[in-house]
Simulated scan of single mutants.
Amino acid sequence: MRLYAETARLLQQQAVIRNWRVVVLCPSRQLNFGDPSPVIEFLEKRVQWLELLPSRQAADAPLLLQALGLLIQAEDQLAAAAAELRFKAAGTALATDLSDVITAIVVSRFSGRSIPELCAMGGITIEDFSQSVAYKEIFGLGEARGKAEGKAEGEARGEAKVVLRLLQRRCGPINPSQEAMIRALPLEKLEALAEALLDFSGAADLTGWLQQ
């Protein structure tokens, strides 16, 4: 949608756009794209090819473009290729961005691997990995979600204890199956039960509420 919006904005600024290009991002132009004859003029004048295979890239290709080649790099060559890119970017303003790109590519390609394995593939330290955007967005979010879920679970356990004590006073002894059902309730249901039990007059009311 963002691409469409930018295109529309450009069209509004100029009635006629003559100097436009199509960018094709591919492993290599040597792939079989079909017979080019019908669109040969279009290909020669309007298409900008960005090839990802290292063997098809110019020696002075932008480092971020070279980094995208890691998407199709063989696994056994990945660490060496990443280390070479990081060496080229060392001491430049691009170093941090390049490190983030490499980390994101490694994480997306090998999401089932351990963090030390991912670091070895990307040629980065665990400290650098933990400071990357990919780590913070994926692993950091998971940690925050885990803490939130743990807090909610703890609150639910505490609420269940209070509700069970109140139910015993209001309805008498609670049988084991009902107790298990109550302890398994999420926090919002426990809060609803705590409010509803104020109107209970016996065990039948609890049974009816649980059945609902």
Rank of each mutant, 00 (worst) to 15 (best):
T7W: 11
C26S: 13
E41K: 14
E149A: 11
G158D: 15
V133R: 11
A152Y: 02
K189F: 02
E179P: 01
Y4W: 08
A8D: 08
T103H: 02
E117M: 12
D100V: 02
S108T: 14
C171I: 01
V16C: 04
R157N: 11
A160L: 05
M121E: 06
L167G: 00
A83R: 14
A134L: 03
L98S: 01
P176D: 09
L197A: 04
L71N: 14
L43P: 00
I102E: 00
Q66G: 03
V107H: 07
L187V: 09
D205S: 04
A152K: 14
L3M: 10
K88L: 15
E179N: 01
L166D: 01
L98P: 00
A194L: 13
V133M: 10
E75A: 11
L68M: 15
K151N: 07
L43A: 12
Q12V: 07
N19W: 03
A5G: 07
S132P: 01
F110Y: 15
P62V: 11
L164Q: 02
V133E: 06
A59G: 14
D97E: 12
N32W: 09
L167I: 02
A5K: 10
T92D: 13
A15V: 07
P36S: 08
T7P: 02
E143Y: 08
A89T: 05
V133Y: 09
I174C: 03
V39N: 15
A184T: 11
A58H: 15
V101S: 01
D60N: 15
A152I: 11
A204Q: 09
G202V: 05
A134H: 04
L31Q: 14
A180M: 05
P62K: 12
L52N: 02
L167E: 00
L65Y: 09
Q212G: 05
N32L: 14
R18P: 01
E127R: 11
E143F: 08
D60S: 14
A120H: 06
